[in-house]
Computed example of a mutant assay.
Amino acid sequence: MEKGDFVNNLRKTASFVVVEVNVSSISLAISTNLRAGTIDDQEIRELSLLKLIKQTVPIGTIFAYASDAVPEGFLVCDGSPLKANDYPELYEVLSTIHGNGIDSNSVLTGNFNLPDYRGMFLRGWDPIGINDPDFNTRQSPRSGANEGNRVGSIQNHHVQAHDHLLNLPRHINIGGRYSGGDWSLAWESHDQFLNNPPQRVGENGGKETRPKNAAVNFIIKVL
């Protein structure tokens, strides 16, 4: 098949519904036949499918996934270091936003890192602090990752500033008279100010401030 015919046929490929497809196998088969100079109509349709998948779900897209079994073409967002040669398209998208290839032992074993969203809530990036009032306190998640208020940055635990009103008497009024038998005792009324020490509100709760939640895997499209 000539190159021109291949392009024309690719453009004319009909729409189709995909139930299940092994993306890696298709990619390998098509790449092999392209190198050999032979390709058939079925492979043209499969090539269109690969293009459609990448257009519909761009590499670098994050999903909340309700299973431990990660689907093909995805990886868990666990901060793992990766090599650019193994995932060139993902590296083109992420670069070193989430790290420069450092592993959990601070050893450089790759060229970039996956985002690490284990135990994290995701928040839309707010470049000028419209809904993120502490946007200037954002930090880099690891060595070589984005610093400051940029995509990939993190914020640590925090509780919004507030106070607790504790009503304590500042003074008491003492006075009265006592009589018994053939004697009596009287004392004058006066204010006695109390020197109250600071009072603490009772401590209770857990190790963090959090909403009710359910665990999922955050997965990222890598192929």
Rank of each mutant, 00 (worst) to 15 (best):
V23K: 13
V23C: 10
S25Q: 15
S25D: 15
S27P: 01
S27F: 11
S27W: 07
S27C: 09
L28G: 07
L28M: 14
A29D: 15
A29Q: 15
T32D: 15
T32E: 14
A36N: 12
A36D: 13
G37E: 01
G37C: 05
T38R: 08
D41Q: 13
Q42E: 15
I44N: 01
R45D: 13
E46T: 00
L47N: 05
S48A: 15
L50A: 09
L50R: 08
K51H: 13
L52K: 14
L52V: 11
K54G: 13
T56S: 15
V57K: 02
I59F: 02
I59T: 15
T61R: 08
T61Q: 06
T61N: 06
F63A: 06
A64R: 07
Y65Q: 02
Y65D: 03
A66Q: 08
A66H: 03
D68G: 10
A69C: 01
E72I: 02
F74R: 00
F74W: 07
L75T: 07
V76T: 14
D78M: 07
S80H: 06
S80D: 09
L82A: 11
L82S: 07
K83N: 11
K83P: 03
K83A: 06
K83M: 11
A84D: 14
D86M: 05
P88V: 05
P88I: 06
L90Q: 07
E92V: 06
E92N: 12
L94P: 00
S95Q: 12
T96D: 06
H98G: 02
H98C: 08
G99R: 02
N100W: 00
N100H: 00
I102W: 12
D103C: 05
S104H: 04
N105L: 08
S106V: 11
S106F: 10
S106G: 04
V107Q: 10
L108Y: 02
T109D: 04
T109M: 03
T109Q: 08
G110C: 05
F112I: 08
N113V: 08
N113A: 08
L114F: 10
P115T: 12
P115C: 12
P115K: 08
